[in-house]
């Protein structure tokens, strides 16, 4: 035991050293120190905890859900909370609400992950290209960004889904199409401040081309502010996806998407309130967790406008 303690001690020392021996170690030190200051933020850790639970639930959905989320049991419909075998009751077709919630977490994570991949990457591309190249390309790209920004997001997403047809993939596409402009703005602003710094001139003198400069020297510096923004946007993405689902334009029945579940339960809200209420609580919990996490990350990664 003493040996493992000693090892742990050295690992900790290795992580907190002032004189890193390698590039790898320096990176690890920075990460670990960020983690230390992040982990003192209780609310952010709470959010992270919820999200880890959510991830595990989604991963092991078939193992932990008590029933098949699609199995209908018409003799057993609209059972109240805590009824036998159905902790959260059953919906209008006698399907177990808890199981549907558990499987629904997969859909939510799927949508959030896809949008969180597509929108920032698109924004990063547009923003850095516009910022680095300047001139007419900059003007055109930023005008396009402004146009998208000027549009109300949900209405634009609605119109896109209407044009593309309802479904999860199209909902993802529509939300991404409305979500990328802020990232482009941020990435461009960062690029403009970096572009004229000395070290960029130094790499330029070494003969690096524009592509290399943008991908190797500008992108890494934009990442942290983008990550903060993405985490803060996640809640909005979840709410937008749920809104589309609620309108019947996102995931199609019988898939257990949370927004669609609320819209199904809406018809029985006066007599059977839990059918619509429980999925709403799930949406609320997850987006609250993302907001808490985003606040915490902003304090760590972005000290200049943190500390709200």
């Amino acid at each position: 035991m003493s040996q493992s303690e000693a090892q742990k001690q050295t690992l900790r020392e290795w992580l907190l050293t002032d004189t890193p021996q390698s590039r790898h170690q320096a990176r690890m030190v920075a990460l670990y120190q960020g983690w230390l200051s992040f982990s003192t933020n209780t609310m952010a850790m709470f959010g992270l905890g919820i999200l880890i639970c959510l991830g595990l639930v989604a991963l092991f959905a078939p193992l932990i859900s008590p029933h098949d989320p699609f199995a209908q049991e018409l003799g057993n419909r609209l059972q109240p909370l805590w009824s036998e075998g159905h902790v959260f009751g059953t919906d209008s077709l006698g399907r177990d609400i808890l199981s549907r919630l558990i499987y629904g977490s997969r859909i939510t994570l799927y949508i959030v992950a896809l949008v969180a991949l597509i929108a920032p990457v698109a924004g990063l591309l547009v923003g850095t290209v516009a910022g680095y190249s300047g001139g007419w390309l900059d003007v055109i790209l930023m005008r396009i960004t402004d146009i998208f920004l000027a549009f109300p997001r949900l209405v634009l997403a609605l119109a896109f889904v209407a044009a593309l047809g309802a479904g999860i993939e199209n909902a993802v596409l529509a939300i991404s199409l409305t979500a990328w402009p802020p990232y482009a703005r941020i990435a461009r602003a960062e690029t403009l401040t970096i572009r004229n710094s000395d070290y960029i001139s130094a790499v330029k003198l070494q003969g690096a081309g524009a592509t290399r400069i943008v991908t190797k020297h500008i992108w890494p510096l934009c990442i942290s502010s983008l990550i903060v923004r993405v985490t803060l946007d996640m809640a909005g993405i979840i709410l937008a996806a749920a809104g589309l689902g609620f309108l019947g334009l996102g995931a199609q029945p019988p898939s257990p998407e949370w927004g669609a579940m609320i819209s199904e339960g809406r018809r029985f809200i006066l007599d059977h309130w839990w059918v619509a209420t429980i999925p709403g609580l799930a949406i609320f919990t997850v987006s609250l967790a993302f907001n808490l996490l985003g606040d915490g990350l902003r304090d760590v990664l972005d000290p200049k406008d943190g500390g709200s």
């Binding site: 809104g243 609320f284 907001n291």
Partner: peptide, 26 residues
């Protein structure tokens, strides 16, 4: 004020609408 704002950012508006309709009207 902080909690109010945080909850406001995280709550699906259509759900809050349904629940308040249920409570105050229903």
């Amino acid at each position: 004020a902080r909690v109010l704002a945080l909850v406001g950012y995280s709550m699906p508006i259509f759900w809050l609408g349904l629940v308040s309709l249920l409570i105050f009207y229903g």
